[in-house]
């Protein structure tokens, strides 16, 4: 098991390398000169040249990339071209906002998604089930930003229950969290329902009933644990969607999180900030997926057996 974890941790290295190359290339070949963008339209050629030299933009792309990566390995996460301060300080300020947003959303997704999915499966083909499946399909089909704007219109502008933007206090998080969780929750409901229905038909569920287990025990002890693997996989993948969705939601609600940080950095071609912030999220996502894989092993003994077999080899 330990060896497997170490192996998986090492596999994050090529992932980070790949992502860094892609982002760096995309940012560098996209039109616009960062130096010109930073100074503004009235910039003279000399000012631009001086700034380019300062930022290292006069060097070949490969050298720029290698310099950035070697700095990264030394623990220097780069200096923002916009604020001229260390990128890590920016992340330290912005990340808690995104973390709150994604953790609360994930918790809501897990709690309501799984619960409603189970209820829907147990009450298959009842009115309740039809309402749940139809509404979750409708919600899953609506784009985040549109739901966000509509909710903002209703609850922030019309009813004035919550502030329309910013995160000055916790009320500012209510709408963003709802928007971020709705679509993904709808997906989790559908997957949970489908998996539970499949598991409930298995022979061992009939065995559990034949033993004299009551319906509650059959569903929560025997069926749910078997259904958890696909559900957790979806939730794990959705954590990626939540991070990506956070970028949209933060923009819609003007929250000072990682999403707006990356979007703004990309807009003015602030390469160090964009690179470091994106890599930070990529590593975070890889770690979450790894943790999920370890959880699998604790739920399903057959997966654990596979780990130990690999270890023996």
């Amino acid at each position: 098991m330990t060896r497997y974890i170490i192996k998986r941790l090492l596999s994050i290295i090529p992932i980070v390398l790949g992502i860094s190359i892609i982002i760096f290339t995309l940012l560098s070949i996209s039109p616009g000169n960062p130096a010109t963008l930073m100074i503004g339209r009235e910039a003279t050629d000399e000012q631009v040249a001086v700034l380019e030299a300062q930022l290292g933009l006069d060097q070949p792309l490969l050298t720029q990339y290698v310099n950035y990566m070697t700095d990264l390995l030394r623990g220097d996460f780069g200096t923002s071209w916009q604020t001229r301060g260390p990128v890590i300080d920016e992340i330290a300020v912005r990340f808690p906002v995104t973390l709150k947003l994604s953790v609360f959303s994930t918790l809501i997704v897990i709690f309501f998604g799984v619960t409603v999915g189970i209820i829907s499966a147990v009450k298959q083909y009842t009115k309740l089930d039809y309402v749940v499946t139809t509404s979750s399909l409708v919600i899953a089909s609506m784009p985040d930003f549109w739901i966000g704007l509509m909710l903002m219109l209703l609850f922030a502008l019309k009813l004035r229950w919550v502030p329309p933007y910013g995160a000055s206090d916790w009320t500012g998080y209510i709408l963003p969290v709802i928007v971020l969780s709705l679509g993904i929750m709808a997906m989790v409901i559908r997957v949970t329902r489908g998996t539970m229905l499949e598991v409930i038909r298995q022979d061992y569920i009939r065995t559990a009933r034949a033993k004299g287990a009551d319906e509650k025990r059959v569903i929560f002890k025997h069926a749910l644990k078997n259904a958890l693997i696909p559900i957790i996989t979806v939730i794990g993948n959705d954590f990626g969607s939540i991070l990506a969705g956070a970028i949209v939601v933060e923009t819609v609600f003007s929250l000072p999180g990682m999403g707006t940080l990356i979007v703004n950095a990309v807009k003015i071609k602030n390469i160090p900030t964009a690179m470091t912030a994106t890599l930070f999220l990529a590593i975070l996502y890889s770690l979450v997926v790894l943790i999920l894989d370890i959880i699998y092993a604790y739920i399903d003994p057959r997966i654990k057996a596979e780990f130990s077999r690999r270890k023996a080899r």
Binding site: Y204, T207, A210, K211, G212, D214, H222, I299, D300, P301
Partner: peptide
């Protein structure tokens, strides 16, 4: 229906056809 669970397993129990699938894979 809910009182059948008192009889199942206690007074009448059943052995199923396929042992490969009639045990829950995630419990010892």
């Amino acid at each position: 229906k809910n009182e059948m669970s008192v009889i199942r397993g206690k007074q009448i129990s059943m052995i199923f056809q396929d042992p490969m699938t009639s045990l829950n894979p995630v419990y010892t």
